[in-house]
């Protein structure tokens, strides 16, 4: 088969909603795009453990402590599912981690913001997981099989993350003055970064949308962002809180909420590495990896010794 035929066969399968699997032929760019996207998604889950992990030791009740620990553990698991999907594309986890540590690979910018109060746990659950879920549901229909299946598994587990976050805020919103203030303050700090999670505006794109054609992505940034805003405006009313956007207004013509302009300068600064916690997050991950080297080496050495002994015993 010529390259042209292979490409056509490949595109036909995508158009027919047939999943692409690990051993199938695929264009090099499709492989590379998926590697980048899946690994960055995995890195996001792992780095995401840090801002929330901060509060496990300080959780204000035993129930909240257990819930938070379970949630963060889930995120580790999600990272694992994604690294697992990524490795089917012919790259090792270690290579992707190396990319993360050297700055070649990125992770979701949202995790470069600090968690400054307990209410941040609720805000992250409600807004950050809420935004992530919208994207994740879309990705369950992505064209690459292992990625789609990982996303299905993740989505099944994700719903409790958002619910526990909102519920946590609900309790605060019905509490003392200090608790209510804590709740509003957290919402004020996490709202705009959550909107930034959906990426640059559609209008920033210039040429062909290969990712849409290959069904790696299935909805545009602005579509998802609008959906998110519409949903949150309704939900925040239940909290008796406000969203920090004076331009939020129902637009009967569009049948959507109009909202204010994102600070794109902040967006690009954080992507470039100048957010509040970029350095700390990466340092923490590098430290964990480096300090864990002797552990990984020891386990590998022991496994090798055992195998050798078993072989010589059998002989």
């Amino acid at each position: 088969m010529s390259i042209h035929d292979l490409e056509k066969h490949f595109q036909d399968r995508i158009d027919a909603e047939i999943k692409i699997e690990p051993l199938d032929w695929m264009p090099d760019a499709y492989r590379k795009t998926n590697i980048r996207q899946i690994s960055q998604h995995a890195h996001s889950e792992i780095v995401g453990m840090l801002p929330e992990g901060n509060w496990i030791s300080r959780a204000p009740s035993l129930k909240r402590k257990a819930i938070l620990l379970a949630k963060v553990q889930d995120e580790a698991g999600h990272g694992l599912y994604l690294y697992s999907a990524c490795e089917t594309l012919g790259i090792t986890r270690e290579e992707t981690i190396n990319d993360l540590h050297t700055g070649r690979a990125k992770y979701s910018s949202i995790f470069n913001y600090p968690t400054l109060s307990w209410a941040d746990m609720g805000a992250i659950g409600w807004l950050v997981d809420g935004a992530a879920i919208m994207n994740q549901v879309m990705l369950t229909r992505t064209s690459y099989g292992p990625y789609a299946r990982a996303m299905v598994r993740i989505c099944k587990e994700e719903s409790f993350h958002q619910r526990q976050g909102f519920e946590s805020l609900l309790v605060l919103s019905k509490g003392s003055d200090a608790q209510r203030a804590m709740c509003q303050d957290a919402i004020n700090r996490w709202w705009w970064p959550a909107l930034m999670m959906f990426g640059p505006r559609d209008s920033e794109s210039t040429n062909s949308d290969q990712s849409m054609k290959w069904k790696i992505k299935r909805k545009t940034n602005d579509e998802l962002r609008q959906q998110f805003v519409d949903m949150c405006v309704e939900q925040v009313k239940l909290l008796g809180m406000t969203l920090p956007d004076p331009d939020l207004k129902w637009n009967a013509e569009r049948n959507h909420y109009d909202f204010g302009t994102i600070d794109w300068n902040e967006f690009w600064q954080v992507v470039k590495g100048n957010g509040p916690c970029n350095r700390e997050r990466l340092e923490a991950r590098k430290k964990a990896w480096e300090e864990g080297t002797w552990v990984r080496e020891a386990a590998a050495a022991h496994a090798a010794k055992k195998q050798k002994r078993a072989a010589s015993n059998a002989a």
Partner: peptide, 18 residues
């Protein structure tokens, strides 16, 4: 729980959190 997010390898992070 102090190991959460700082374990020597992802799988063990999950194990100690468990």
């Amino acid at each position: 729980a102090e190991w959460c997010g700082h374990g020597p390898v992802l799988e063990q992070d999950i194990a100690i959190s468990n």
